[in-house]
């Protein structure tokens, strides 16, 4: 698999709804075969970005390429090669699940293998005979997941893929997404659930008020971020001032105990602490959620 091929590219993407500027210049690049998490709170522009990728809405400015194609000029080719799960999934209430899935399959020229559709439904515990009107939100979401995956697309565009699912089903969907990646698909998914992105995504993009403020490997982002360190010195030793150490700032002091904030590598702090009698040393790695919130507090 060629991992350097760009599957999804957005440059300077802008979009307004009347006076509301939803996207203010989104830049994104997703490589072939990766799982990319698009993180942001409600209204940040995640759904708008995904819908532009499928030509459901047209941008005011900027360029987009999906699988090397322009979604406006080659809309059909793009949509034929993508699987899409909308953030707000609505189904034809009067139809049974199987009828709905067969209709979607007909739109794709009957490309899906029905045995695979059944196996997907089975893994998700979805009854194909059930009328859509009787489905819970979670079961509707399962229909959405099946229809997005059933034709084995090259690119999966999933807007909040586990919305409404119970934790067990969320894990099953994660397994399905990883399975699609293992089969060669690229996955671009949006979420405001940090734990999900941390668990699933290899790279993450954070969008804030219509601008992508950070794109990095998930683990790099976590490692690079601020850490908290708590140091207790031995034998009632009065804590020295460590604020001069590179990347270190003091959060609180309580007798022989310091709580510090460390930016970047811990090396300088550890070397400085080696000069003193240290009884306890604890560090906390921030969750993606804390990193995410830090971006939003800026």
């Amino acid at each position: 698999m060629n991992t350097s091929t760009t599957v999804l590219l957005a440059q300077g993407l802008t979009k307004s709804y009347g006076r509301v500027q939803a996207l203010r210049g989104v830049d994104l690049e997703v490589k072939q075969g990766e799982i990319f998490g698009f993180l942001g709170p409600n209204g940040a522009g995640k759904t708008t970005t995904i819908r532009i990728l499928l030509d459901l809405i047209r941008p005011d400015g900027g360029t987009v390429r999906v699988l090397g194609l322009d979604p406006q000029k080659d809309s059909l080719a793009v949509r034929a090669r993508c699987g899409y799960l909308p953030g707000e999934l609505h189904l034809e209430e009067s139809e049974r699940v199987e009828t709905i899935l067969r209709q979607f399959n007909a739109f794709r020229g009957g490309k899906a293998d029905w045995g695979y559709v059944r196996s997907l439904a089975e893994r998700l515990g979805l009854d194909l005979k059930m009328p859509a009107r009787n489905l819970s939100k979670g079961n509707k979401q399962k229909v959405g997941v099946v229809q997005a995956l059933m034709h084995r697309p090259e690119l999966l565009l999933l807007d909040e893929p586990t919305s409404g699912l119970d934790p067990l089903m969320q894990q099953e969907v994660h397994r399905l997404i990883r399975g699609a990646k293992a089969d060669g698909a690229t996955v671009f998914f949006s979420s405001h659930v940090m734990a999900e992105v941390e668990q699933l995504a290899e790279r993450v993009g954070i969008i804030r008020q219509g601008v992508v403020v950070e794109v990095a490997e998930t683990q790099t982002l976590i490692k690079r971020a601020l850490r908290r360190a708590r140091v207790r010195f031995a034998g009632g030793f009065q804590a020295p001032a460590l604020e001069g150490v590179r990347g270190v700032s003091l959060l609180s002091r309580d007798g022989d105990t310091l709580v510090l904030q460390v930016e970047g590598e811990m090396d300088a702090l550890i070397k400085e602490l080696a000069k003193y009698p240290v009884a306890e040393f604890e560090t906390e790695r921030p969750s993606l959620e804390e990193i995410f919130l830090a971006y939003y507090e800026r």
């Binding site: 949509r79 999934l89 959405g144």
Partner: peptide
């Protein structure tokens, strides 16, 4: 208005 057109047009139908 029902929200079903979004998904229909995400399929390869002109």
């Amino acid at each position: 208005e029902k929200g079903t057109l979004d998904l229909i047009l995400a399929h390869p139908i002109p």
